[in-house]
Design a protein around this nucleic acid. Structure first.
Lengths: 322, 322
DNA sequence: CTATTTAGTTGCATGATACAACTTTATCGA
DNA sequence: TCGATAAAGTTGTATCATGCAACTAAATAG
């Protein structure tokens, strides 16, 4: 058990998870406003996706094959599911929904969506994202999925302004740096004020901002400010990724996107400011050719830290270095 | 269904939630490495907390009382649970764990902790908090459905800076004004930049910001800037409430709090800037003694609107007007 | 003092599930 | 090519958690 997972967190997660399962109605005999047992509802939704066999259902729902067999029999008898012999293998039966089965699934979706939407209406908008992140992280962890490196599915890197981008980038900074490094009001003001001014200059072709988005949620950001450091120098700013994206490679993707832009725009150097102690980030910078150029105590962010300037020369067009 | 909860988020949460329930093993007959049914495991953990009756168990596990009765019978027969007649009421039985029951619960805890710790070990350090937050938010939201109608629990008006306040106030503005009035990047920059600068001046006694909070969520804001309009004039700024608080009276409470502060600080006038079309807000202002003092086309917010200045003279100490 | 409510039990029916044994079809190795 | 083995799905059998309804006993209200 890793040391950083305190027993407190573990028990808190367990207790919440127990409550959640109860709220979701784990012991009720029917579900989602139908007279179907929970497993049948799950099964119908899986079958809706297409290309499913009885064996797949057993694996996905963690049910014994005989239980699946009987459950399917009932769904076939009720006219919701159709079985078709699979081509090429006489043993397997492909499952699909009949017309009435589709109606039934549609009703299930409508009911469940209304229920979830009603629950979410008790949250503020930003918290919807927190809910999804938390559920997804925990589920993936339980499933033992470790597809490290590959960007999480559905995460895209997009550029340009969108409503709320200043607010959200500021929020990620305020949250992370206040909790992990004790930075407070002045730091948040510096971030918000800088971003506000920068956004007004986004139409200049040397300036750009990118975000990592999942749906309409912003989970990471980076920007190149091509004006504020003087001619020929790109300033890499507002580079941060949400906890939910840690270890997914999205952080690297953002950084590479920004550096490619800086190179393409013809900047000879890219500068960035940070402070000591952010070792994971520093490693990333150095991998990309950044070198520590300046270091010293400073308090421009509202607290005395060892501020650092990293500089990266443009990758030479003559010999790509790697 | 509030417009800001897109179908995308809802279906993503539903899909993840289905997966989670499966990973937690909702359909397996035993749980947590014991030979007990899920409900019995939940029951034992509840009983461990102490002061529980059969009726309480039914409520917490959402089970019918007869089911609880039978389940308890088995736990008593197996020597894990003890029933004691409650003092003062001959009908109820207080439940407690026997020595062997405590051993059993300890084993359950050990098993489950190991399982959760193993899952969490696949996450990055900061993600544990994200998991807990997401689970807790969603569970609370779901639980909130059952006791619906409970009027906005625990909404408080608080003053002063807290991490993320600039981000959140900016977000509320960006979201509302971009969707309802088509204001875009420049407006968000004006809000964020103004707030950033104002936050740096919050230590001045004539400046203050208030937020309506529910737990740690910010659902409304207002501020008095006592410096930027010149001597003797208070500037009411960043007044907004989230959809979730519409009609709860929190908006009025915020406004009254800010105006009371302005009066107490001795300002002779309070000014605010808005634009035409925000009729509900205008009504609120006029109720509090604001009068339209100036009006004209302008585009300081990035779009041509009819900008308005409202002015309210300090409530005379001689005759409080209402 | 009687009627009603509440905590908990029991009769009964339902039905979801696992295990084991089975049929049918596919695959693999010599 | 054939025989052994595995895989997909079915059926027999037993178990057991659950809900509804009817019940007992104790408390409370009028």
């Amino acid at each position: 058990m890793p040391a950083h997972h305190h027993l407190h967190s573990i028990d808190a997660i367990r207790a919440t998870s127990r409550r959640l399962v109860r709220e979701l109605g784990f012991m009720s005999t029917d579900l989602a406003g139908t007279d179907l047992p929970p497993s049948a509802v799950h099964a119908l939704i899986e079958i809706e996706g297409g290309g499913v066999t009885a064996r797949d259902l057993g694996a996905r729902l963690r049910l014994e094959k005989s239980s699946v067999s009987r459950m399917l029999r009932k769904l076939v008898d009720s006219g919701d599911v159709r079985e078709l012999a699979a081509e090429g293998d006489g043993r397997v039966k492909m499952l699909s929904l009949t017309a009435s089965g589709k109606d039934r699934v549609a009703a299930i979706h409508a009911f469940a969506r209304a229920q979830v939407a009603d629950a979410l209406s008790r949250l503020q908008p930003g918290q919807t994202r927190a809910v999804l992140e938390g559920l997804r992280l925990y589920t993936d962890a339980l499933a033992g999925q470790r597809d490290a490196g590959a960007p999480a599915p559905g995460i895209r890197i997009e550029s340009g302004y969108r409503p709320g981008i200043i607010a959200r980038i500021t929020e990620m900074h305020a949250r992370y740096y206040s909790q992990a490094h004790g930075l407070g009001q002045h730091f948040e003001s510096v971030v918000a004020g800088g971003l506000a001014a920068f956004a007004d200059r986004l139409n200049a072709p040397v300036n750009q901002v990118w975000v990592a988005t999942a749906g309409d949620a912003i989970l990471g950001s980076i920007a190149i400010d091509g004006e504020d450091m003087g001619p020929g120098i790109a300033h890499l700013r507002w580079y941060i990724v949400d906890d939910a994206l840690r270890g997914t490679g999205c952080g690297k993707a953002l950084l590479d996107t920004a550096l490619a832009f800086a190179d393409a725009q013809g900047f000879s150097e890219t500068h960035l400011f940070t402070f000591s102690g952010l070792d994971a980030a520093r490693h990333l910078y150095e991998q990309r050719g950044f070198v520590l150029a300046q270091e010293g105590a400073g308090s421009q962010w509202g607290k005395e830290v060892t501020e650092q300037r990293f500089v990266r020369k443009r990758t030479s067009p003559r010999h790509a270095d790697r």
